[in-house]
Design a protein around this nucleic acid. Structure first.
Lengths: 239, 239
DNA sequence: TTGAAAATCACTCAAATGTGCGATTTCCAC
DNA sequence: GTGGAAATCGCACATTTGAGTGATTTTCAA
């Protein structure tokens, strides 16, 4: 499947850092990687790839979520390469547990399918990257290094889904017309607060909040808080 | 800053297509690129890079939005490389115009700053990719080829912002627990409809809608329509 | 300094909303 | 066919919200 490990030589930790890294790791540090992968063949090949690459070290290769969560607490990996379609529980349910166990750990999803549902669930659960399994070794290592340095990595096909998501949100309402106070209140609205709470948060009177809201509604051409929130988030209001 | 144009030789249209392309372009076709860039030096260097690379052709290099919109209609480029910080109008305002003019055109944003505001506005306006200017030539060409083939491209730093966005949305509420009717009503809520309207849309009674809402609130652990909408969209409710 | 925009607050009234309680009907799996 | 979930509707009551009107103070740029 993967075009062999010959690309490994291309991978360079520092010189290749394309998107740039503001905070550079101490270059002597290894990136400790942990693998959670169903398929034994892929697992072996991944760990071989990682251990065979300078600057990377595979400190764990787990078969399922249970084993992974148990093993990862001990090893403290920097990056976990996480298969989604595991036999037991989904890898997605694993993300949170991993992050709770080792808060600084970066989770890189690794799957064959470019499924929207799984992609967005993963991202919202806290995944730091999302790769398709067809990703060649060089890019995989690059991605690992990427997420380790605080950036994110995703396959072009995945990026496409993400971009599509934003396209569907549609152009954002022009909040420029809103004053700073109005914006502040709108943001509180968008969190589900009600007027009394907003008043407290802003340290102003209840009626003042209502006045601001009235003005906001006028400017956004809506007539309820819910519609205002909808506009703020961007979903196509009322078709 | 950028490691010169020597990397150009590394760029391969087809073999390097890492994230894979389901629909392959006829490989003899050139990718026609148009540039919109303020700075003359960068503009020249970009067009030189593009014209000097096999498979790419620069069919236009424009100074500002007005010139670009005028010139791009004629050339029908496949990809427009669009600087954000133009002297006149922002490049962001340009996206929509370009897409209206040439619907199939792919717009690749190109900027020095990793500004969240501009990033998300661009994406929502329809941008297909987002690159930082420090991107080395090889990657730039790769990105152009990426968006041209229907995928998306973004710098790792940019991807990080996107991922952060989803992290902030927080794990999605489990709408599985909602019945189909409840989901339908929730979707109407999320469009800003009020109860009477929802009743009409669903062809049921006013009070029935209220009953459904009550149940929805219970299941989502909220107590207002706005909070329900917020959860539906995903924004972190009340911090 | 002067004027306009922004921010503040108050009061009213009608409409929409949240909530508690109860009820009937429909549908589907066991 | 029986039981449980889903869907439907009704009513009462308190709260929240939207909308109108008017007013004072603050801020800030021309």
């Amino acid at each position: 499947m993967t075009p062999s490990l010959t690309h490994t030589a291309y991978v360079r930790r520092k010189p290749l850092r394309v998107e740039s890294v503001s905070i550079q790791m101490t270059s002597t540090d290894l990136i400790k990687v942990s693998i959670v992968e169903d398929d034994e063949r892929i697992r072996k090949s991944l760990s071989a790839l990682i251990d065979g690459s300078e600057g990377f070290r595979c400190i764990g290769a787990h078969r399922d979520v249970k084993e992974a969560v148990a093993g990862i607490g001990a090893g403290c990996p920097h990056v976990v390469l996480l298969d989604i379609n595991l036999s037991g529980a989904s890898g997605i349910d694993c993300i949170r547990e991993l992050k709770n166990l080792v808060p600084e750990v970066k989770v890189l999803m690794y799957t064959v399918y470019d499924d929207e549902e799984q992609l967005f669930r993963s991202l919202r659960e806290g995944a730091d990257g999302y790769l398709l399994k067809r990703t060649p070794p060089a890019r995989l290592l690059e991605a690992i290094s990427d997420v380790h340095s605080g950036n994110s990595a995703m396959s072009g096909q995945i990026a496409r889904l993400v971009v599509k998501y934003f396209h569907q949100l549609g152009p954002r309402v022009e909040t420029e017309k809103l004053t700073s106070r109005e914006l502040e209140i709108l943001r509180h609205l968008a969190k589900g607060y009600q007027n009394k709470e907003i008043a407290d948060l802003c340290g102003i009177g209840f009626d003042t909040v209502r006045t601001h809201l009235r003005n906001i509604y006028h400017k956004l051409h809506v007539n309820s808080r819910t519609e205002a929130v909808v506009r703020f988030f961007g979903s196509s209001p009322k078709e």
